[in-house]
């Protein structure tokens, strides 16, 4: 098995990209993973159906933080529908490592923050109650 702690993962962990708050974001959602105590809030700005800016804030293990950091870069200029369709495999592809089964929750926490944020945002906009 290749190590989860590849150079690039640790680089994103030590120097997370787009780290901080995005004051005028329309989408804002905090998600946590009780296993590791990871907790991240994601902020997305949406323009004409495209994500124009993204930031995140929070703390956790290397896997969760690296995936949050990589996702914050990945989501830009994507449509909300694109992001809603993303799955674990897509995150793993971004990470470029094998994540042990025990740690997939860590890899997913940032994506969940994004997707639940979008769901809440669209739910609010349509004024419908999706769930």
């Amino acid at each position: 098995m290749t190590s989860m702690y590849a150079e690039e993962i640790l680089d994103h962990y030590r120097n997370p990209r787009n780290f901080g708050e995005l004051k005028d974001a329309q989408i804002k959602y905090k998600e946590s993973n009780p296993l590791c105590g990871d907790e991240y809030e994601f902020y997305l700005k949406v323009n004409n159906g495209l994500v124009s800016d993204a930031k995140f804030f929070g703390d956790g293990c290397a896997i969760s933080k690296a995936s949050a950091s990589m996702l914050s870069e990945h989501v830009k200029n994507k449509t909300l529908d694109d992001l809603k369709k993303m799955k674990l495999d897509d995150v793993l592809k971004l990470l470029g490592i094998e994540v042990s089964a025990a740690r997939t929750k860590c890899a997913l926490v940032a994506l969940l923050a994004i997707q639940k944020g979008i769901q809440k945002f669209e739910g609010g906009k349509n004024d419908g109650s999706q769930r």
């Binding site: 098995m1 989860m4 702690y5 590791c36 293990c61 042990s100 860590c106």
Partner: peptide, 12 residues
């Protein structure tokens, strides 16, 4: 080093 990262690294 986060405790779970430590444990994963040791597991490696």
């Amino acid at each position: 080093i986060h405790a779970h990262d430590m444990a994963s690294f040791l597991d490696d």
